[in-house]
Amino acid sequence: MKNSIHFKASEVVSVLDTLTLTPGNLDVIKARDVWEISKQGEGNVVAVLDTGVDTDHQSLSRNIMDGYNFSDDDKGDPNIFEDYAGHGTHVAGIIAAYQDKGRGIYGVAPKCKLLILKVMNRNGVGSYKSITEAINYAMDWTGPKGEKVNVINMSLGGPTPNEEMHSAIKKARRKGITVVAAAGNEGDGNPNSFERSYPGYYQEVIQVGSVNKELQPSFFSNNNVNIDFVAPGENVYSTHLDNKFVKLTGTSMAAPYVAGSVALILNMIEREKPSMIPYFVYHYLLTHARKLNYSIHSVGNGLVQLTSANKLTFMTSYSPEKFAYFFK
């Protein structure tokens, strides 16, 4: 469908009723190295545009601040943003899950909060209209204590550009919101055979590809000139429906590792000028990323890394066009 957005469903490899685990992927991106200095993302709000969330999940419920339904599920009732597909719950857990009473799983930023904006229905289908409305909603949303959205995660994509959605993204960025999206799962393993998914392909969006546990580009991960960074995206454990945990694969899983990282980074950078925040976030990601010996069309600037160390040199592997855009 030309004007639809979607996620490519991943096979559920295993389902666990109980899980007590600090996922190794947190150490792959070195998230725990900065948990103390970043306060585990406390004070920041990530808007998750997806299939909703399991609002009662033991590892997520206290971090869910609010939500809104833009999909056609539940007859379009805006107040019901429950997840019937599991995708949104899995993505939310990668960002902000926590252990409760010794049970559960840790996300990248377990003390950040979530605004759940349901833009896809139980079949994983939505529209550019719903995503545009959700981005505008995220920009205008204010929490009970004056909280504002700092990060938007979109583990979804459509095959064609959409000007209304693009305009909303540009406006969000000018307001100081960092926008992160999945690169897409239409890759064929050829770094010179480009695949584009929107909104990830837009310059204003941090587009995230997937790598496996050996830090090799995932075969399915889209390749194009605007890939920014990569993160773990294969066989990722996270939260799922009915208070359970599952393992999923896709760039949908890689993007929230970066969105959660941004929630940590925001507590380690200068934030006095809101319009400059996405610039400083990108600067941090760029200067700390781990260079991987693969085409920049597959891995962009490299693997996302978090550290309190202050690196002053830029990486030499980057997309010149993207670099110029963020550092103009």
Rank of each mutant, 00 (worst) to 15 (best):
324 A>H: 08
32 R>L: 03
299 V>G: 08
132 T>K: 04
162 N>S: 06
59 S>V: 01
283 H>R: 15
187 G>P: 07
29 I>H: 08
36 E>N: 15
282 Y>P: 03
97 A>S: 14
221 S>L: 06
37 I>N: 12
201 Y>I: 09
236 V>Y: 03
161 P>E: 05
239 T>H: 10
277 I>H: 01
141 W>S: 08
95 I>V: 12
237 Y>T: 00
170 K>A: 06
168 A>V: 03
298 S>V: 06
307 T>P: 12
279 Y>W: 08
240 H>A: 15
304 V>A: 11
83 D>L: 09
27 D>I: 02
23 P>D: 01
238 S>V: 04
134 A>K: 08
150 N>I: 01
103 R>N: 15
279 Y>A: 00
36 E>S: 14
13 V>S: 06
106 Y>T: 06
290 R>A: 14
223 N>Q: 14
206 I>N: 04
148 K>Q: 14
264 L>P: 00
272 E>T: 15
308 S>M: 11
319 S>E: 08
228 D>A: 13
135 I>S: 01
292 L>G: 07
28 V>K: 08
202 Y>N: 10
116 I>H: 04
127 S>F: 03
79 N>M: 09
112 C>V: 02
55 T>N: 14
231 A>H: 02
53 V>M: 11
306 L>M: 08
4 S>L: 15
255 A>F: 02
56 D>L: 11
311 K>Q: 13
115 L>H: 00
91 V>G: 05
54 D>C: 03
218 S>K: 02
198 Y>P: 12
56 D>R: 14
93 G>Q: 10
253 M>L: 09
172 A>W: 05
18 T>M: 01
82 E>P: 00
85 A>N: 15
298 S>D: 12
51 T>D: 03
245 F>Y: 15
47 A>S: 08
285 L>P: 06
253 M>D: 08
238 S>Y: 05
